[in-house]
Nucleic acid binder design. Structure first.
Length: 103
DNA sequence: CCACTGACTACTT
DNA sequence: CAAGTAGCCAGTG
């Protein structure tokens, strides 16, 4: 059985529209755990396959991809760019423009 | 139940 | 700005 926090987090991830991203911390905060960012990573690890989650729309608080190169980093970046999200010179996303507030 | 892990974050050097 | 550290909490065995 998953906790309410986890279920809510899953719901929010599914609700991120194309061309927008959310940070681990924001998802966790909206789900009720301001410090539960790490749980989001676990969700993506174990639930992304079964729940058809847009995992690529989740980035860290700095607006950067957290995956290591050759471990999904390039794939995620490609998926985001195909949705219209732009990366700066240092591979960071302008969160003030692309961050999705869920409401 | 205990120990370990993790696609994190904020703070300090 | 980069590297190190402590706090965080649910999933898994």
């Amino acid at each position: 059985m998953l906790t309410p926090f986890t279920q809510k987090a899953l719901h929010m991830i599914k609700n991120i529209p194309e061309g927008r991203v959310m940070t681990y911390g924001s998802i966790a905060a909206f789900a009720g755990k301001p410090n539960g960012a790490r749980q989001i990573s676990r969700l993506l690890h174990s639930m992304s396959k079964k729940h058809d989650l847009p995992w690529h729309r989740v980035v860290n608080s700095k607006g950067k991809i957290s995956l290591r190169p050759s471990h999904g980093y390039e794939l995620q970046k490609a998926l985001l760019e195909s949705e219209g999200i732009e990366f700066s010179k240092s591979d960071t996303i302008n969160l003030t423009f692309f961050l999705w507030s869920s409401l």
